[in-house]
């Protein structure tokens, strides 16, 4: 098959802003998909907690995870999101150094949180097989860690590309879209911390 077209480049170049609006829709849909995944995990937590099968949601005498640590980790993600949005405002106001510095700080905070998440995972006062509660905590922590690493990749790209003068006050839709994703990740982390704050099952009757 030939692919000759007349009068136009064979690959059509489009207005970057149009592409940006399109990507915004795409990112929102991907956030919806990821949201369904996170919702499934959180639903599992609350469902098993509510059901408390054989009264073994939390095994008898089992230690539970620190709620404070969970909220601290969520706080780390929120802080990194705030730093990122500070950087985003910078580039929207035309300050490229603020973009580079802000994304660098945001990624640093995010990686520090990821290290904290790994430390929490390795120092839980229970094993993954102890009870449904402990399995759920390990899984939620793992999912959060995955989120953080993916976001760190995006943040690193923003920092590097900012450094290379790719974004400007008029052309920054990629920075904005990464900001959307970052906000969602922070929201997911808060939802996770909120969920794991509820430990003991309300269903204790005979």
């Amino acid at each position: 098959m030939s692919s000759v077209t007349i009068g136009e480049p064979a690959v059509h170049l489009e207005d970057p802003d149009k592409v940006g609006r399109r990507w915004r829709t795409g990112i929102l849909l991907l956030i919806l998909a990821d949201g369904a995944f996170v919702a499934a995990l959180l639903f599992s937590y609350f469902y098993l907690r509510g059901l408390n099968t054989e009264k073994a949601w939390v095994a008898h005498g089992q230690a539970t995870a620190s709620i404070v640590v969970g909220w601290l980790l969520a706080g780390g993600v929120v802080l990194s999101a705030a730093l990122y949005h500070w950087a985003l405002r910078g580039i929207r106001a035309g300050s490229e150094p603020r973009l580079v510095l802000g994304t660098l700080l945001a990624v640093a905070v995010l990686l520090a949180t990821a290290i904290g998440q790994v430390m929490q995972l390795t120092t839980f006062p229970f094993g993954v097989a102890d009870s449904a509660y402990s399995s759920a905590l390990y899984t939620l922590a793992g999912a959060n860690l995955f989120h953080l690493l993916l976001t760190a990749f995006l943040g690193a790209a923003m920092w590097n590309r900012g450094r290379l003068h790719i974004y400007s006050v008029t052309s920054n839709w990629q920075v904005r879209l990464v900001g959307l994703w970052w906000t969602w990740v922070a929201g997911a982390a808060v939802l996770g911390a909120f969920t794991t704050s509820f430990i003991a099952s309300p269903n204790v009757g005979g």
């Binding site: 995990l41 098993l48 073994a56 993954v128 097989a129 009870s131 399995s135």
Partner: peptide, 24 residues
């Protein structure tokens, strides 16, 4: 999500679907 939980059950002894461990 349900498959990730199954993977946890099968690889590291998770209790998501095991009734005796509080799963369902």
């Amino acid at each position: 999500g349900s498959m990730v939980l199954l993977g946890v059950d099968r690889t590291v002894g998770g209790q998501f679907y095991v009734a005796s461990g509080g799963g369902s």
